[in-house]
Design a protein around this nucleic acid. Structure first.
Length: 879
RNA sequence: GGGCGGAUAGCUCAGUUGGGAGAGCGCAGCCCUUACAAGGCUGAUGUCGCAGGUUCGAGCCCUGCUCCGCCCACCA
C-alpha cells in the first residue's frame, strides 16, 4: 500500500455509473490491459467469443454470454494468466442477406436487379456501416477482449482457412456432391440443413384418396401428381396380393400407372396401411424410391409453384394446387373421406415459410467420421461439457448425425471454391481461383453457391488464431481453455467446432464448454421481436449501470435453469452497487492521518480479525464456485459478505473507532482493517463489477496502476481466525438478542436500554466485558457483566448460547408483550425437545446412526431443555 | 415416439457428497441514528407437486404418477 489516495473529489452519495464507465474503459484499452502476448511464458488462458452477427446489435443473450466470459477472463488475468479473449464477428450468411434484401425491397429493387457483384458490394457496404455497432456495445458492457485481434469470418485470413479446409475435405473425399432430397425454402431460395428447419404443429386435413382398389390417407394431396408408387408393409397380409403389381389408376389427369412395393418404412397401423410414394417431395418416399427404383417426379419447383410435370396444375402455387386437386378429386369421386389432422410442418428458421422437400444437387460433408472423433473427445474427458446433462444431448446428435449439406443458394458468404469445366463438366476444387480447366485448359465456370455460414464459424477457434499459417498464437492458445455458449447452438456451432478442430488441428478446440441458459422476460416468456417483450440491455445499462446489469445476470446464472429478467432484479443489484459506493465513501472520508506503514504494525482487534477471517472464507468460496462455473453462488457469496457482514456489522463497529480521536492507535488499526478489507473485496468483485471497483480502488490506498491487473485474492490461511469468528459470534449474538427484545417489545429507538449479561464462565465474561462498549453502541444498551447476576425486576430475557441477557424494562414498557414473546419461545423450545426426544427414543436411531449425530442430537435437546427452563422460570417471574 | 429440465415462502429462485429448509423482492412494525431511505433494525409466512420405496433419518437417492417447459424424430 504505497500509494496514497489521490485527493478525493467530493463524492456523491449516490453512485452515478455513466461517468465512471465512460472514463475507465478507454483507459484500460489504451494501456493495453486487454492485449494478449503470444510469446509470454505465463500460463495461457484463452476464450474465443461466440461471434455475433456483424450487422447485429447487442441483445440480452449476448449480455449474459459475454458477461460470463468477461468474468472468467478478468479473473484469470488478475490471477496471472496470459489471457486472450479473442473477439470477432460472423457474416451470418442468410440473416445478413435477408436484411439487405429487405433494404432493397424498400427501394423497390430485387437483388437480381443489381446482379451478384453489386449486391455483394452492397452487403459489404452495409457491413461497414453497421459492423461497429455490436463492438461498441460489447465495450460498453465492459468486455475485455483483445480488440487488436478482431476477426471477421470473411476477412482474408479466415477465408483462406475456409478454402484450405474445404480443399482438404474434398481431397479426402469427405466433401462430395449429391442429388438428394433437401429442405428447400421457396422464399429464401436456398437449401437448409435439418437444423435450420423449425417444426410447428399445424391443423391440416387428412385426405383419404381412392387409388383403384386401395385407399390411402395423405396431408399433401397436391403431391399426388408426383406419385410414382404405392407402398405397404411387407408383412401386411391385407395387401400382399398387390405387391409387385403395377396398377392403372384413374386420377385427376387421366389414368396413371403406379407400382406397389413392400417397404419396412410403412406403418401398417397408421391410416389404411398404404402410402403413396412421392420420391420427389418427401424424404421418406425418396428413400423408399431409392430402395425400389421408383422414378423421381418433380412436380413442385424451387419457387414453390407446380411445375410443368404437374400437368394442368402447372404454375399454380402449391397450396392453391392442394385445394384445387381436392376439389377435382371430389368431383371425380376419388375422395373417400376427409379427417381433421394435426401434425408438425417444417418451417424455414429465418422466414417461417413452409419448407418444401425437393431433390437437388448439393454439396455435402460426410461428417460421420469426424463425429466419431468428436464423441471420443467428450467421452475421454478431453472436452468437458458443463452442466453435465448436455453431454447426453451432444452424444445423441453426434451418434445420429447425417451428412451435412453445406451449399447455400445465396450470394453473401464464402463462395464454394469449385469450378466446372465447360467442355466436359469435370469438377475442380482449388485453393486458388481458376480461370481455365487444369485438365484441358478449357473455359471454367465457378459454382455459384456459398457455404453454410456455420462452416466458417466451425473453424473459429483456430482460424482466428492465424491458421492455416503457423503462428505463435496457435502454439500458445490452442486448444482454448473455455467456450461459453448458449444451448441453442450446441449442434450448429459447438459440434462443428469439435469436429473441425479435431480434424484439422488433431486436438480439441476447447477444454471446457460452459452452456448457459436462456434469458427470458419477467413472465418467463422467450423474448421475441414479434411478442414485443424484448428487453434492451443498453437500456438497462443506462438505467441502472453496467455493473448492476452484469451482476444481475451473473447472480441469476444458476446452472440448468433459464433466467427470468426483470427491472426489479436489476434495481436490486443497482442498490448493491450503491451500497458499496457508500461503504467506500465512509471509509474514504475517514482516512485522514492514515499511514499504511505504521498501520501494518498495529494490533487488530477482535472485529478486525473477524472481518479479515470472513473475507478469507469468502475468497475461498468465490474461487471455488468460479472454478466450477457456479456463477450465481460466487455472486451470492460476495453479495452476502459485502452487505451482510462488512457493511451491516463491520462498518458499524468501525465507526466507533473512527469517530473518536482519543485513541489514535485503535483508530489506525481500524483504518487499516477497513482499507485492506475493502481493497481486497474490490479485487474479488472486480470481474463481476469492473467499473465501480476500479473507481473506488483508485481512490483507496493501493498497489499498482489498475485493479484490472492487480492480483486476484487468494485464501491466506494465516488470516483465517476461528477463535475470532466464534468470539465475534457471541458478541453479535448479544447485540442481536437485545435488538430482538427492542424490536418485539416496541421500545422506541431513542431509548437506551440497560442490559445485564450473565455469562457461564470467566472467559465469556471477559469477552463480553471487553466489548461492552461495542455492544452498547450497536444495541443502544448499557451493558453490565456479572457471572452471578440476578434478573432485575421487570426485564426481558434473551438467551445466547450459554449466556443470559436481561434487558430492564421497568418504566419503559409493560411486560404483556414479554409474556407473549416468552410463550412463543417456550413453544419453539418445547417443539424442538419433543422432536429430539422422539428421535432419541427410537432404538434404531440410537443404534444405527453415527455416534456423532446422536451426540449432537442429545446436546441439542439438552440445550433446548436448559433454554426452556430459563424461559419458563422467566415466564413465572413475569406473570 | 424418444430424451432433458422444472414443480421449495405471496413472487422469482438458491439448496454440491441424505442429519429438523434459505436468499432477494414483496409484506408488517419502528426509525430520515452525520456512508447509504437505492438505507437501518425487528418480525411473519413453507403437508419442499402427488403416491410408494430405500434408510435410524429423504427437499436431496430409487420407482410410478400428475402438471408445465424445452430439445430431438422421415408415421404419410
Amino acid at each position: 500500500m504505497s500509494e496514497q489516495p489521490k485527493d478525493p473529489a467530493p463524492i456523491s452519495d449516490r453512485y452515478e455509473p455513466a461517468a465512471v464507465e465512460e472514463r475507465w474503459y478507454p483507459i484500460w484499452e489504451q494501456r493495453g490491459y486487454f492485449k494478449a502476448d503470444p510469446t509470454s511464458a505465463k500460463k495461457p488462458y484463452c476464450i474465443v467469443i461466440p461471434p455475433p452477427n456483424v450487422t447485429g446489435s447487442l441483445h440480452i443473450g449476448h449480455g449474459l454470454n459475454d458477461t460470463l466470459q468477461d468474468v472468467m477472463v478478468r479473473m484469470k488475468r488478475m490471477d496471472g494468466f496470459n489471457t486472450l479473449w479473442q473477439p470477432g464477428t460472423d457474416h451470418a450468411g442468410i440473416a445478413t442477406q435477408v436484411v439487405v434484401e429487405r433494404q432493397l425491397a424498400a427501394e423497390g429493387k430485387r437483388k437480381e436487379d443489381l446482379g451478384r457483384e453489386a449486391f455483394v458490394q452492397r452487403v459489404w457496404q452495409w457491413k461497414e456501416e453497421s459492423g461497429g455497432t455490436i463492438i461498441r456495445q460489447l465495450k460498453r458492457l465492459g468486455a475485455s477482449c483483445d480488440w487488436s485481434r478482431l476477426r471477421f469470418t470473411m476477412d482474408e485470413g479466415l477465408s483462406r482457412a475456409v478454402r484450405e479446409v474445404f480443399v482438404r475435405l474434398w481431397d479426402e473425399k469427405l466433401i462430395y456432391r449429391d442429388d438428394y432430397i433437401v429442405n428447400w425454402c421457396p422464399r429464401c431460395g436456398t437449401v437448409l440443413s435439418d437444423l435450420e428447419v423449425d417444426r410447428e404443429e399445424r391443423d391440416a386435413e387428412f385426405v383419404y384418396i381412392k387409388y383403384g382398389p386401395l385407399t390411402l390417407g395423405t396431408v399433401r394431396p397436391e403431391t399426388k401428381v408426383g406419385d410414382t408408387g404405392l407402398a405397404v408393409h411387407p408383412k401386411d397380409k391385407r395387401y400382399k396380393k398387390y405387391v409387385g403389381k403395377t396398377l392403372d389408376i384413374p386420377s385427376v389427369d387421366g389414368t396413371v400407372s403406379v407400382r406397389v412395393v413392400a417397404d419396412e418404412a410403412v406403418d401398417p397401423k397408421f391410416g389404411t396401411g398404404v402410402i403413396k410414394v412421392t420420391p420427389g417431395h418427401d424424404p421418406t418416399d425418396f428413400e423408399i424410391g431409392r430402395r425400389h427404383n421408383l422414378p423421381v417426379r418433380t412436380v413442385i419447383g424451387f419457387d414453390g409453384r407446380m411445375t410443368e410435370a404437374a400437368g394442368k396444375y402447372a404454375g399454380m402455387d402449391r397450396f392453391e394446387a392442394r385445394k384445387k386437386i381436392v376439389e377435382d378429386m371430389q368431383a371425380l369421386g376419388l375422395i373417400d373421406h376427409i379427417e381433421p389432422y394435426r401434425h408438425a410442418v417444417g418451417l424455414c428458421y429465418r422466414c417461417k415459410t413452409v419448407v418444401e422437400p425437393l431433390v437437388s444437387k448439393q454439396w455435402y460433408v460426410n461428417v460421420k467420421p469426424l463425429a466419431q472423433e468428436a464423441i471420443k473427445a467428450v467421452r475421454s474427458g478431453k472436452i468437458k461439457i458443463i452442466p453435465r446433462g448436455w453431454t447426453k444431448t451432444y452424444y445423441h446428435w453426434m451418434e445420429n448425425i447425417r451428412p451435412w449439406p453445406i451449399s447455400r443458394q445465396l450470394w453473401w458468404g464464402h463462395q464454394i471454391p469449385a469450378w466446372y469445366c465447360e467442355r466436359d463438366g469435370s469438377i475442380h476444387v482449388s485453393r486458388t481461383d481458376l480461370t481455365s480447366c487444369p485438365d484441358c485448359g478449357g473455359p471454367v465456370r465457378r459454382d455459384p453457391d456459398v457455404l453454410d455460414t456455420w462452416f466458417s464459424s466451425g473453424l473459429w477457434p483456430f482460424s482466428t488464431l492465424g491458421w492455416p499459417d503457423d503462428t505463435p498464437e496457435l502454439h500458445t492458445f490452442y486448444p482454448t481453455s473455455l467456450l461459453v455458449t448458449s444451448f441453442d447452438i450446441i449442434f450448429f456451432w459447438v459440434a462443428r467446432m469439435a469436429m473441425f478442430g479435431l480434424y484439422v488441428m488433431k486436438a480439441v478446440p476447447f477444454r471446457d464448454v460452459y452452456i448457459h441458459a436462456l434469458v427470458r422476460d419477467a413472465e418467463g416468456q422467450k423474448m421475441s421481436k414479434s411478442k414485443g417483450n424484448v428487453v434492451d440491455p443498453l437500456e438497462l445499462m443506462t438505467k441502472y449501470g453496467t455493473d448492476a446489469f452484469r451482476f444481475t445476470l451473473v447472480a441469476l446464472a444458476a446452472q440448468g435453469r433459464d433466467i427470468r429478467l426483470s427491472d426489479e432484479r436489476v434495481e436490486g443489484y443497482r442498490n448493491f452497487a450503491n451500497k458499496l459506493w457508500n461503504a467506500a465513501r465512509l471509509v474514504l472520508s475517514n482516512l485522514d492521518g492514515y499511514d499504511a506503514g505504521a498501520a501494518r504494525k498495529a494490533t487488530p482487534d477482535l472485529a478486525a480479525r473477524w472481518i479479515t477471517s470472513r473475507l478469507q472464507a469468502t475468497t475461498a468460496v468465490v474461487r471455488r464456485h468460479l472454478t466450477a462455473y457456479r456463477f450465481n453462488d460466487a455472486a451470492a457469496a460476495i453479495y452476502q459478505f459485502l452487505w451482510g457482514e462488512f457493511c451491516d456489522w463491520y462498518l458499524e463497529i468501525a465507526k466507533l473507532d473512527l469517530y473518536r480521536r482519543d485513541e489514535p492507535a485503535r483508530r489506525l488499526a481500524t483504518q487499516h482493517a477497513l482499507v485492506t478489507t475493502l481493497e481486497c473485496t474490490l479485487r474479488l468483485l472486480h470481474p463481476f463489477m469492473p467499473f465501480i471497483t476500479e473507481e473506488i480502488w483508485q481512490r483507496l490506498p493501493h498497489d499498482g496502476e489498475s485493479i484490472m491487473i492487480a492480483p486476484y485474492p487468494k485464501l491466506v490461511r494465516a488470516r483465517v481466525d476461528a477463535t475470532a469468528e466464534t468470539q465475534m459470534g457471541v458478541v453479535m449474538g448479544v447485540v442481536t438478542a437485545i435488538r430482538n427484545i427492542r424490536g418485539e417489545m416496541r421500545v422506541a429507538p431513542g431509548v437506551t436500554l440497560a442490559a445485564a449479561v450473565k455469562p457461564p464462565d470467566a472467559a465469556s465474561a471477559a469477552l463480553v466485558q471487553d466489548h461492552a462498549a461495542l455492544i452498547q453502541s450497536l444495541a443502544r444498551a448499557t451493558v453490565s457483566v456479572d457471572q452471578a447476576a440476578t434478573r432485575p425486576r421487570n426485564s426481558a430475557l434473551g438467551v445466547v448460547g450459554g449466556l443470559e441477557v436481561y434487558v430492564a424494562l421497568e418504566g419503559i414498557v409493560d411486560l404483556t408483550a414479554e409474556r407473549q414473546r416468552l410463550e412463543k419461545e417456550i413453544k419453539r423450545a418445547e417443539d424442538a425437545i419433543a422432536f429430539g426426544r422422539a428421535k432419541l427414543a427410537r432404538p434404531e436411531f440410537a443404534e444405527r446412526a453415527p455416534a456423532e449425530i446422536v451426540d449432537k442430537e442429545r446436546e441439542k435437546v439438552a440445550q433446548q431443555e436448559a433454554l426452556r427452563e430459563k424461559l419458563v422460570a422467566s415466564l413465572a417471574w413475569v406473570g
